[in-house]
Design a binder for these strands. Structure first.
Lengths: 236, 236
DNA sequence: CGAAATCTTGACCGATCTCAACTTACGTGG
DNA sequence: CCACGTAAGTTGAGATCGGTCAAGATTTCG
């Protein structure tokens, strides 16, 4: 649970670490070098070990977290205590946003899935930057738009589609997003996929077996799925 | 389907209509009069009759819509064609945001539930305003944060709670938001509530009848519900 | 190599959807 | 202001989807 600070930018010569960190963040990478430097002043680097929590539901929220290296999983607990995986952050993704623009507490949990390097920006400092460099706001607004769009799409799927269909759509999206030809690799364990899709590992396993029996897909290894008949899959 | 333009701001003396329109919009109402005038230059007023569509899924999206008077319902069709009500816009609320920051098409439908007055701002003009007055961005970011938060909360509920619990939570939230004492008034028909909660009118009707039989609530009229035992309701 | 986690498969049960009939409320026009 | 037609809401019966519990297989990692 211990948090180690890395690349403390006040230490001599350590600033370079931030260069790598900040410049790979989409919301900042359009700025000029001078502005970039100013941002680096506000950014702190932190590393988390696998399994460490970045924040928990109920924690006060006062920073934005940007993933520099590693992978972070965001999940929620429902009112009745069940866990649902909300999303996985990869390098360049950020979180903490929900509470950045109002005083509040986190509603979700953020856990490092592997050893990860995270950059944090204090909420107040970020607001100052946004006021000074309005283009950053547009970037963030754009990111929020996308996330909101996909969250509402997801909500509608949960509200109207059965599990079988949600799984098929998930596979189709994977194929679209990061498919190499016809094969997709699950970005997380099947257990986590089940949580993400609002079902159980048992049901996921059964449905995938069905898809395979019907010739729509082929499972090889534990995380690789070849899509044999995308159209058939989507007709389910 | 006919759209009538009202308060055309180029016509003499018609600007006053905008004053009322713009000033009641939370994202603008912190600005000074001079800035407000500039914004009014970019805003157009439009009225929609009950049942008219403001936009449909697939339409190109290039404006932000702000409800001045009336009520607008936003809903989606899932991949399999089922409808889900996403939210209801009341005066001061806005929509169209998803596509404002990237070229894209609407994924949802916006329909006037009653005769409504809407203010629209062209996407390009809005971006100029955001760059000029960064505080507007912060307001919108704040609004997006809230909406994202509630959308993800909703997703988690769909993913993990059964219908009974979702209904109970919905009632509890209504009570919290706009409850006068112990009585809530449904903001829409039960049919729409069912759609919003991702269930059917039949199931909603049954569960409410159960709640009533168990003494948690009392239904009077078609849209009024008195909460007799909130704790009992939430334990369901 | 062994413990722990993940994944799979089976059997069962319960929640919710569907279809259908009926009742009630609402809006329009006479 | 009432009557009618349409939409909304209710209630019942049956079918199905998906969750739970349990056992076994497989994988991973120390």
């Amino acid at each position: 649970m211990k948090v180690e600070k890395t690349c403390p930018h006040h230490a001599d010569g350590a600033g370079r670490h931030h260069q790598g960190c900040v410049s790979l963040v989409p919301i900042f990478n359009h700025l000029e070098p001078g502005q970039m430097n100013e941002i680096m002043q506000a950014v702190r680097g932190v590393t988390y070990k696998k399994g460490e929590m970045m924040y928990r539901a109920g924690d006060a929220s006062d920073s934005m977290y940007i993933v520099n290296k590693g992978q972070v999983k965001i999940y929620r607990l429902s009112e009745s205590g069940k866990e649902q995986l909300v999303r996985i952050l990869n390098p360049g993704d950020f979180t903490g946003e929900l509470a950045l623009f109002k005083q509040s507490v986190h509603e979700a949990y953020a856990e490092a899935m592997v050893d990860s390097q995270i950059c944090t920006i204090n909420s107040f400092d970020l607001q100052q930057l946004l006021l000074k460099y309005p283009t950053i706001s547009l970037k963030i607004l754009n990111e929020f738009s996308n996330r909101l769009e996909s969250s509402e799409r997801q909500t509608t799927r949960f509200a109207t589609e059965k599990v079988e269909t949600r799984i098929a759509l998930f596979l189709a999206e994977l194929l679209d997003t990061e498919g190499n030809g016809k094969t997709v690799q699950l970005p997380m364990s099947k257990k986590d996929v089940a949580s993400y899709l609002g079902t159980t590992p048992e049901t996921l396993s059964r449905r995938l077996a069905e898809f395979e029996a019907e010739g729509y897909i082929e499972q090889t290894g534990q995380r690789n799925i070849t899509i044999l008949d995308l159209d058939g899959l989507l007709l389910v």
